[in-house]
Amino acid sequence: MSLPKRLSQEEQGTLVRRLKARDERALGELFDALAPWVVGVAVRILGDVDEAEEVAGDVFVQVWRRIDQHDASRGPLVPWILSIARNRALDALRRRRRWWRKTEQWERGGRGELGVAEQGIALHEAAVPGWPVHREVHAALATLPEEQRRVVVLAYFEGLTHREIARRLAQPLGTVKTRLRSAQAKLTEALSHLKDWIA
């Protein structure tokens, strides 16, 4: 297993510019820094390491192809890449028609929340760029009331619509929407200070 490498400040500052200049080494460095997080998101959504790594590979190829579409003024790079990872993973989940089976597995396994210490894999904090961000996001989620955190997780990591969440939780649709709005407001307030940590 290779642990992610740290990026120097200088490298971080020029990474996107080098990617746009079609520098393959920059893609390698981006991979080193972000692949663990991309795979983590994909594993969380798909529940399968092999599928998640396949998705992660597709994500970095897509980042390479679409880097010119990334507008730094509209948002940082890391969330952009994470959103690609999430969308790809959800697409794979739907495409392979395992949606219900996977979600039921998550329910049975009690991993519907954020207990994602995946399969005995543990990374040393110091080895992972972005770990402080992870802690902050995790903490922000943890401070949400249980019912709000649950709807956020179902919406983000399982790609459920409001109506599907309502059906899953046996709650009125209006209640689900209200919880999501409240959760989003709290997360926005808690994470508004976050800056991109890679570029």
Partner: peptide, 23 residues
């Protein structure tokens, strides 16, 4: 702000050869 939610999941290192496959 939900864009950052992916960071809530613990990281997981990919297998060693994945980067080579991507490149």
């Amino acid at each position: 702000m939900t864009d950052w939610l992916g960071m809530a999941v613990p990281p997981r290192p990919p297998r060693a050869e994945l980067q080579g496959l991507v490149l």
